[in-house]
Design a binder for these strands. Sequence first.
DNA 1: GGCTCCATGTAAAACGTTACATGATTTC
DNA 2: GAAATCATGTAACGTTTTACATGGAGCC
Lengths: 196, 196
Amino acid sequence: MSGRTDKTSDLGHALLGLLARREATGYDLSARLAAPLGYFWTASHSQVYPELARLEAAGLVTHEEIPGRGPRPTKRYAVTAAGRSALAAWVVTDPGEQADRDVLVLRAYSLWLADPAAAAAMLRGLRERHAARLEEYLQHEREIRAEGGEIAWDDPRFAALARVRAGIGYERHRLAWVDWVVSALTTGHAPTDDAN
Amino acid sequence: MSGRTDKTSDLGHALLGLLARREATGYDLSARLAAPLGYFWTASHSQVYPELARLEAAGLVTHEEIPGRGPRPTKRYAVTAAGRSALAAWVVTDPGEQADRDVLVLRAYSLWLADPAAAAAMLRGLRERHAARLEEYLQHEREIRAEGGEIAWDDPRFAALARVRAGIGYERHRLAWVDWVVSALTTGHAPTDDAN
DNA sequence: GGCTCCATGTAAAACGTTACATGATTTC
DNA sequence: GAAATCATGTAACGTTTTACATGGAGCC
């Protein structure tokens, strides 16, 4: 029985997922998980470094020191065979209920108490941010598809595409919702039919 | 200077938002914030009780003891005038960037390593859950609209409607995404055009 | 007799953010 | 010469989850 069975966290699986594509330093991984570029998971370097140490203790990754420019030795991490199979097994596990916490919908729930003009202004600012993100995602999708040809399911690009399409769908839903709320605030009441 | 300026947390605002609609015990609030019914925020009772104490110390809520069936005195909480105006002011503040952490998309990002049949099975189970939730939300929307007539923006039902419509849009987006992934796994490759 | 509902609290652990700390090289 | 980039780590704090603890009333 080698390797701990300590149960790897979601963050650990995020790091494994990135490392399975290519080797990287903790710094690289942190950069890719910095908001809002890493739009499926976010983490700061202070979480990443200890987690990499834990993954290594569990035998899921290894590192090798390479020449670098930091005051401490620069470490390049790679997934082990055990790490790769742990990741593959975890992928198909049931993700369970997601705790949906949404700070915008939380505000919406108390909108009836607020100043409607101020609320509409806040929402319009938000709309712009969502529209900008949607454009980024669409651009990113085009980049993934740029080479042309079919993208098979076992190609890492397929997973990248799935990820970006989740982002695109989400932003579109968000835009539609914000527009619904703003138009209701403008007319003073909710539309009586939304064509469900 | 009365009242602390300690900065109320999101949870605190969630509780204020519920209490602004009607008075309730900590137990009631916990029940309404239990997943998945409270689909804009979730919390367990061990978070709710201390937070209510903090809100009271800040002068945003008060309580009165009522006859109840617990081993300790039963407390019914209500928002104060200060609580109501703090809530109204917070509603229109910019919610900032949401850290989007999505355990399903996190899995999708490593899907290329997994067994496609197992992945499709997991996703089909998930699809059912999303479809069931969507039905619940649509039913809830019908209930809100049941009385008929226009729902003005300053009616608490308007905010409830905004909340449920966010849920409906989200579930539809999720269903479409899951279907996209499952169909790609079934055909073995991503569709070459998604009609963007 | 056992289970669920009511009703409140505390404690420990896990997870996440922000701040502290260090220091060479490259770019403006 | 100031700022950003590379590169790693620890510490303090805040938030969230899970577990412990108590006890009466009503239902099967």
